[in-house]
Simulated scan of single mutants.
Amino acid sequence: MLKFIKGHMESMEGIATYPMISLLIFFVFFTILFWWVFTATKEHIKEVSNIPLEDDDKTNLTK
């Protein structure tokens, strides 16, 4: 079965562009994530990190 799939994939024209597109998407995503982590303010990170520690009463009042 693997031989069939490999032979079928080799017969497709332009199949080499798909791994390049995947690599580009991966690189762009993690570059943006890296940029966001280093530009985020400490106040925002502290606020978001305390969300799981908040009481249920506070979160129910805002809904």
Rank of each mutant, 00 (worst) to 15 (best):
I5T: 12
I5G: 07
I5F: 08
I5D: 07
K6Q: 07
K6N: 08
G7R: 06
G7T: 10
G7V: 08
H8W: 13
M9F: 12
M9N: 13
M9D: 04
M9Y: 12
M9C: 11
E10I: 09
S11L: 05
S11T: 00
S11W: 00
S11Y: 03
M12Q: 07
E13C: 00
G14C: 01
G14A: 01
G14D: 00
G14M: 05
I15Y: 02
I15P: 02
I15V: 10
I15S: 08
A16Y: 03
A16F: 02
A16Q: 04
A16S: 12
A16P: 05
T17P: 03
T17N: 10
T17W: 04
Y18L: 09
Y18S: 10
Y18H: 10
Y18V: 10
P19H: 05
P19E: 04
P19L: 07
M20I: 09
M20D: 11
M20W: 05
I21G: 02
I21P: 01
L23A: 10
L23K: 11
L23M: 13
L24R: 04
L24Y: 07
I25P: 09
I25Q: 14
F27R: 15
F27A: 13
V28L: 12
V28S: 14
V28W: 10
F29L: 06
F30T: 06
F30E: 06
T31S: 11
I32S: 12
I32K: 08
I32Q: 07
I32P: 03
L33W: 11
F34W: 10
F34V: 03
W35S: 10
W36N: 07
W36S: 04
V37Y: 04
F38L: 12
F38R: 04
T39M: 06
T39R: 00
A40V: 02
A40K: 04
A40E: 00
A40C: 06
A40H: 02
T41L: 02
T41G: 04
K42P: 03
E43C: 06
E43Y: 00
E43G: 08
H44C: 11
H44A: 14
H44R: 12
H44W: 07
K46T: 02
K46I: 03
E47N: 05
E47M: 01
E47C: 01
E47F: 01
V48N: 01
V48E: 04
S49C: 07
S49Q: 09
N50M: 14
I51C: 02
I51D: 12
P52V: 03
P52G: 01
L53M: 11
L53G: 14
L53Y: 12
L53R: 15
E54D: 15
E54L: 11
E54G: 09
E54F: 06
E54Y: 06
D55E: 14
D56I: 15
D56C: 14
D57E: 12
K58G: 09
T59R: 12
T59H: 10
N60V: 12
